[in-house]
């Protein structure tokens, strides 16, 4: 079937089988930022915009995009730069594999907010479908809150408490206590 899509602003036409997903279509047309993490619409890695609304491209057939516009991170390099900086300054990209999907969804969220500053729980809810296994989400939250202009984004590099060693505990260091050596010693090879 012939499909014509406006991909990142340029028309693309291709002959696809009816079961081709938008994810497959986009990868085949060079949009390698679009990743697949689960195939079951749980992870958010394949998030792209279909007519400016975020969709999971692994669950959209390519033919559904016929005559419509699709935006991937390849088409938002300038628009995503400031968010990228907020994330990078927190180390929040880590392995980076979930980053493109997250960036696409945060930018969609930002547009939906239209300048309004969201509450934390609202951010978490909107982005709940963007899984990340590396970061535990906290650094992403700090970065996104900063990006969206939320008050108190939390620990920021250079800010007090962000990195300084905490001086806690007052117990004096006791004298070494001899301990009987092991009778048997384990092998630590691994």
């Amino acid at each position: 079937m012939n499909v014509t899509v406006t991909l990142n602003g340029a028309p693309v036409t291709d002959d696809v089988t009816p079961d081709t997903t938008l994810y497959e279509f986009l990868r085949a047309h060079g949009c390698k930022s679009v990743k697949c993490g689960c195939e079951t619409t749980n992870c958010g890695l394949c998030t792209v915009w279909l007519d400016d609304a975020p969709v999971l491209s692994c669950a959209v057939l390519a033919v559904r995009a016929d005559g419509r516009s699709v935006t991937t991170l390849e088409g938002l390099q300038d628009q995503s730069a400031r968010l990228a900086r907020c994330l990078a300054e927190q180390g929040a990209e880590q392995c980076g594999f979930c980053s493109p999907g997250l960036v696409m969804n945060v930018l969609a969220f930002e547009r939906e907010l239209a300048g309004r500053v969201p509450a934390d729980e609202e951010i978490r809810r909107f982005l709940a479908g963007n899984l990340c296994r590396c970061t535990g989400y906290m650094s992403q939250m700090r970065a996104i809150k900063r990006y969206l202009g939320c008050p108190d984004p939390g620990a920021w590099p250079g800010a007090a408490g962000a990195s300084g060693p905490a001086a806690a505990g007052t117990a004096a260091r006791p004298a070494p206590v001899p301990v009987a050596p092991a009778k048997e010693v384990p092998t630590h090879e691994r």
Binding site: K32, S33, V34, K35, T72, L73, E74, Q77, S80, L83, A84, L87, A88, E89, G91, E93, C95, G96, F97, S99, P100, V103, P157, G158, A162, S163, P165
Partner: peptide, 26 residues
Amino acid sequence: TPELAQVSHPVVKKDAYALLAGKPLY
């Protein structure tokens, strides 16, 4: 530790911006 100039600092990952821009790297 306070004497260190590069270690014990929040240095941005070298690959951060390429990863965040979705470059084909995997």
